[in-house]
Amino acid sequence: MKIATPNDRLKQIMKERNLRQVDVVKMSEYYQRELGVKLTKSNISQYVKGTSNPDNKKIQLLAKTLKVSEGWLSGYDVKKELVVSKSELSNHFDKIFQSDKIKLDLDFANQKYENQEHKLTFLALLENFDKLEEDKRKNLLHYSDVLLESTYQKDEYNIVATMFDNSMEPTYSEGDRLMVSFGFDFKFGEDYLIEYKEDILIRRLFFENYKILLVPLNDKHPTTTIILPLKDHFKVIGKIIGKIKTSP
């Protein structure tokens, strides 16, 4: 059953996340290319004012951008949360990791080999990247939040992890992109990107009586208790050092 308009839902989520019209357009740029759908600030302005309604293609684009279900954004009485399978989440993480590794290689090469004398070394370093077809190379680079938004902050980080649920609210909300550092000083009571069994989690880490506790900040989500010695796969990927800013 439809209980709201797409315009109402768009205004609601923009207010909840403190997003400006220009922020939504900026966040949608990758998906505009992926879906072949154009979105402008004028479009968003008309939707917010209620002078026009987004068509099905725009609904799909906005839902992907804002990481909500198309049904909810369309105004139906359904869950707002976007359901993401474990395989999709792992694939998302793998793509980000691959593109961020390319960024690190590029940064290293640009700093170390600034003149033509080292051109062969530079090309050798980027050999695998240059073997990709141009379209795939562009898609891979644009996929990474690091490459899209690295000009907006000066923090040192390696990859970006996206919050796919509200388990770390109020500190981190669904859709937030979090900076992850590999070179960190480990301390209990801080937030980490973690692999446990088949899951990729963002949790606050504690140690208690030969137990590792993976604690969400939202008490609606359960704490995961890992008994030592370890019997299942467990790995701390990196430390959460802050949120990616979505505007300069």
Rank of each mutant, 00 (worst) to 15 (best):
Y192T: 00
D232C: 00
K211A: 03
L214R: 04
R204K: 12
I200R: 08
D176V: 09
D185K: 12
F164L: 13
F184H: 15
I226Q: 06
F186V: 01
L201K: 04
G189L: 03
I200A: 09
K245L: 12
D232F: 01
L213C: 06
K245S: 12
T224V: 14
Y196N: 08
P222L: 15
L230A: 05
L214H: 01
F207C: 09
S167L: 05
D199A: 10
F207N: 05
E198F: 03
F206N: 06
L217D: 13
H233F: 12
I200N: 09
S173W: 00
T223V: 15
K220R: 15
G242A: 12
N218F: 10
G242H: 03
D191I: 11
L230T: 07
L217G: 05
P170F: 10
D185T: 13
D191F: 07
E190M: 02
L193R: 04
L214E: 07
L228S: 03
D185W: 06
H221A: 10
Y210V: 04
F206L: 04
D165C: 11
M168Q: 06
G238Y: 00
V180E: 00
N218L: 13
K211Y: 02
F182V: 08
L228R: 05
E190T: 11
G175R: 08
E195L: 08
I240C: 05
R177K: 14
E198H: 11
G183E: 15
D232L: 09
E208W: 11
L214K: 01
T162P: 00
G238C: 09
M163I: 04
T223G: 08
F182S: 11
Y192E: 03
L214T: 06
L217E: 13
V215I: 12
R177M: 13
D199K: 12
K243H: 09
D185N: 15
I194T: 05
P229K: 09
V215M: 15
S181I: 01
K245G: 14
K220D: 14
F207R: 11
D165G: 07
T225G: 04
L217P: 09
M163K: 05
K187R: 15
P229H: 09
L178P: 07
P229M: 03
L228C: 06
D219W: 02
I227L: 14
E190A: 06
